[in-house]
Computed example of a mutant assay.
Amino acid sequence: MKISETDILLIPGYGKTLPGHWLLRWQDKMATARVVKQNELHQPTKKAWLETLVKDVEACKRPVVLVAHSLGCILVAHAAHALKGKIQGAYLVAPSDWDREGLVKEFDGGDFKPIPAHPLPFPAHVVASRNDPYCDYERAQGFAKTWGTTFQDAGEAGHINLESGHGPWPEGLMSFAHFMKKLG
């Protein structure tokens, strides 16, 4: 599947996505990509975020591929069955483990917990780091297994964000292109 023939929805995670983050850079590189803009970034609710995602998916004119980071990955898992038949695939980077107590001091995970443990109804790929402070590597492998996705070891890459040195993240873009090619 060609990137130019799809609508790529980029789904940020918890908090503000800072300029220079790979997700925003991808939006600049791909003419058919746009960020799903959630209203509440620091006290999100699953219902509000889900409604925004569904609305954005329904507005798409081409086949839809989701690219999510952190809490955005968990949103995709929650939204999967509501989006069944509309999504061609999902590329899930550094899922965060909101079932873990005290993950973020300011937010306890709210109604994003428990994290869904059922297969996704579309092809998906999880990319995880061995030293992500927001999700143990084995837990990320467990997400991939229960969601029925392929899995990629990103090495010791932190949370795959600006803080861990992943502004451009060219390896991720190459991995995403490979994922798109597998979608047909």
Rank of each mutant, 00 (worst) to 15 (best):
M1H: 12
D28T: 12
F143M: 00
A177I: 09
G15E: 04
V54A: 06
G158Q: 04
P119V: 09
P114S: 04
Q27D: 12
D97S: 12
P63F: 10
E163L: 15
L18T: 12
E51G: 11
W22S: 03
Q152S: 14
M174E: 11
H78I: 12
L183D: 05
D97V: 11
K113Y: 07
R100A: 08
V64A: 05
D108I: 09
A124F: 05
E156F: 11
R25E: 10
L24A: 00
P19S: 09
Y91R: 02
I8L: 15
F122I: 06
L53H: 01
E5A: 12
E58W: 03
H21Y: 10
A128E: 01
A177N: 09
P123I: 05
S164N: 10
V57L: 05
H118L: 15
Y137Q: 06
K47N: 11
P123T: 07
A68S: 12
P116D: 02
G167C: 11
A117I: 02
V104Y: 09
Q88C: 12
G20I: 10
P12A: 04
W98Y: 14
G172P: 00
R100Y: 06
D153Y: 08
F107D: 03
A124E: 00
L103E: 04
H81K: 14
L120W: 00
K182G: 14
S164M: 12
G167Q: 11
Q38A: 02
H78E: 06
Q152A: 06
I11A: 05
E101L: 11
K86M: 14
G20T: 06
K61A: 13
M1Q: 04
F143C: 03
K16Q: 14
T6P: 01
K55H: 15
K105V: 13
S4G: 08
H166N: 08
E58T: 12
Y137P: 08
R100I: 14
H166F: 15
L75H: 03
L183S: 07
L92I: 07
V93L: 02
D132L: 10
T146K: 05
S175C: 06
L173I: 12
P114L: 13
R130M: 13
R139F: 10
A124G: 15
V35H: 06
F179T: 06
H166K: 09
A80M: 12
F151R: 02
G110A: 12
P133M: 14
N161M: 04
E40F: 10
G184I: 07
A68T: 06
S96H: 01
G85L: 09
M1T: 07
T45P: 03
E5N: 10
D111I: 09
M30A: 10
R62D: 07
L23Y: 00
A140T: 01
A94C: 11
V76F: 00
K16Y: 12
V65N: 02
V93T: 01
S4V: 13
W22F: 07
G72F: 00
M1E: 01
M1C: 08
R62W: 05
P133Q: 06
F143P: 03
